[in-house]
Design a protein around this nucleic acid. Sequence first.
DNA 1: GATGAATGAGTGTTCATTCAT
DNA 2: AATGAATGAACACTCATTCAT
Lengths: 204, 204, 204, 204
Amino acid sequence: MPDESATREKLVECARQEFLEKGYMKASLRSICKKAGVTTGALYFFFQNKEDLLSAVVGETLGGLMELIQSHFSKELDTEAKMALNGDASEDIRASKEILHYLYQHYDIVLILLAKSQGSVYETIVDRFVDVLEQHYDKLTEQISAKLGQPKPDRYIIHWASHMQIDAFVHLLTHEKDEEKALKNIEQIVAYLVAGWVGAFARK
Amino acid sequence: MPDESATREKLVECARQEFLEKGYMKASLRSICKKAGVTTGALYFFFQNKEDLLSAVVGETLGGLMELIQSHFSKELDTEAKMALNGDASEDIRASKEILHYLYQHYDIVLILLAKSQGSVYETIVDRFVDVLEQHYDKLTEQISAKLGQPKPDRYIIHWASHMQIDAFVHLLTHEKDEEKALKNIEQIVAYLVAGWVGAFARK
Amino acid sequence: MPDESATREKLVECARQEFLEKGYMKASLRSICKKAGVTTGALYFFFQNKEDLLSAVVGETLGGLMELIQSHFSKELDTEAKMALNGDASEDIRASKEILHYLYQHYDIVLILLAKSQGSVYETIVDRFVDVLEQHYDKLTEQISAKLGQPKPDRYIIHWASHMQIDAFVHLLTHEKDEEKALKNIEQIVAYLVAGWVGAFARK
Amino acid sequence: MPDESATREKLVECARQEFLEKGYMKASLRSICKKAGVTTGALYFFFQNKEDLLSAVVGETLGGLMELIQSHFSKELDTEAKMALNGDASEDIRASKEILHYLYQHYDIVLILLAKSQGSVYETIVDRFVDVLEQHYDKLTEQISAKLGQPKPDRYIIHWASHMQIDAFVHLLTHEKDEEKALKNIEQIVAYLVAGWVGAFARK
DNA sequence: GATGAATGAGTGTTCATTCAT
DNA sequence: AATGAATGAACACTCATTCAT
């Protein structure tokens, strides 16, 4: 929004391609500039350094994604707990599809974030997503265990399951380029994960 | 086995440390040689290039691991199918623990393989593990679906679940340094995963 | 006098800080403009180049200093020669204090000139001060040697002693931030230097 | 002594020229390598960085000079004090000539050290020389003042006079390329400085 | 078996300066 | 009077790799 410079936009666009192709570390600023038809000096007029350029590529999308995830996983838990007890995964599926849609709308950038950002500040971004989910599931299992009169799953298993859920998105993205097919698959994945939670309670 | 040169071994050992510390891409051959107290020429006498050195570090352990996994997931499926139908996960747990034990015995190298090999041939190693599991589960679900008279889960969900299972190991390894604790956690994970399979069948 | 632009003044002010902090060579025009809140284009509207900017910072003060020195060392020499012969250094001390006061009033700029101008036209400024003194002492020693009937000190020693006198100011400035203390020290320095001249005559 | 590589020596030699010509900061490693007919990689095989290269150029000579100065100014002071009281500067002259000879034998390098090292670790090297002299003169004036029954000159004036003495060497070196002429001049300089000390005592 | 030396292309980054608007 | 954009050359430094000895 704030910037309308054509050169800047061309740089961001070429950087996106380069990061996607080679990953952050192997990406070459020279190569990006060459593609964009400018000199390195021009790049450094718009961006402070390599990492800042990555942020420019990724920032907006990341912000939106973070918001989306938080909005889904920071809601009132009561309804969700009840649905979970009834084995109703419809809400989970709806949320997952919404997120998935966002991911596919920003396909390249999300891929850079999740799989090509090694060596940058974003290399641990997955962990931050996991954190959000983990807090959500911590509270949710708390409620469910209270209602069931059964012990809550281990901290570790909650963390792990949150991780798995994020990994499920990553996997979809990296293995299925077509959004429609991905949307079909996500339903089954959610079914698997929901059933997994059942196992997590039963076991304990 | 084939090599008994002290220099070679020192190089491999120092390379292991360097790869573990910095990851494959950021690892410096110079730095490895310095630690080993030899010159780069010596390194290039024993190894063809950087990647070959990584193979020397990782090869044996990887081979053993591949064998172990294959031995577990290429057996006769009949018994396993029956156990699965009875909800008996004891065999799965036993197998998982055996693999986990192997992973912890070769902790550093496995970590390099699974989390520090980006930029090398091994960056897709996880996929090869997944392949083995996928083939196994493909056949297993075939049998189970036949016995249940229910449709088999999708190809994708089989692939994905296999991936999740491998990721579970990766997660354990990277989040839990202590083998004993990891062994406790794996039980719950297996419970979760087994329950997940149930969900995968039910859905379809 | 000639310029009243607020931007120009801000630039000169910020340049002064930067030059003082980093020295001429390491000073960055970018950094100066940033501090001043303008772009490099603005700087180049007012100044031709980096050196011209330094001149703007330093020019007026340098001019005043040059005048002051010249006014002190281009006077009639007769009286001074007589005082010197009587061992009376009071006039020298007075002059030195007046110059020193000027230096401390323009502390930053003088410091830039004397110690931070390497790489610019002013890196040899000390030599120009020395020239003035040298001419003065050349004539003065001429008179004194005539009156004493003793040979004049060597050209070199006259040049050197002039240099020492300038260096004395530089040293004071760089080692003593407080003007009052500097004023006390200068008396002893003058005593040292005057006595030195005696030695210069005696020797020859 | 320790190194006999022709390339290394050529690099050191070319670096000496470059540092002398442009000063440390403006010296370009590229340019040095070009002159030496090697690539930058070769330079970095022998030296850790730009500063290390400067050390290689300057180190030995600096070590020798430091020793020489220390050997002259760390001796027993008793004789010197007596000579000073008798106005006998012959020993001072002898020492100064010996040092001066050393300086002229290593003309280029000394010049680099004293006048071209700004931006490197050596930019404050003069201060270290001054320190040695200052300590020497502190003790010497102590003895002399005791014998004279007169107060010792100020700390500041001792520091300053030490500085002047070093500056005298710097001045000679930078203004007189011919050692023989320099040797003649030094006698008069010493006479001036010795007389100056007399003034320093008288004043106080 | 291993060294010491060297290559050559590459890295991200900074700089004073220019100029159309 | 000043901006925003861009140049182009330079910088110190690092890398995997090679090879004569």
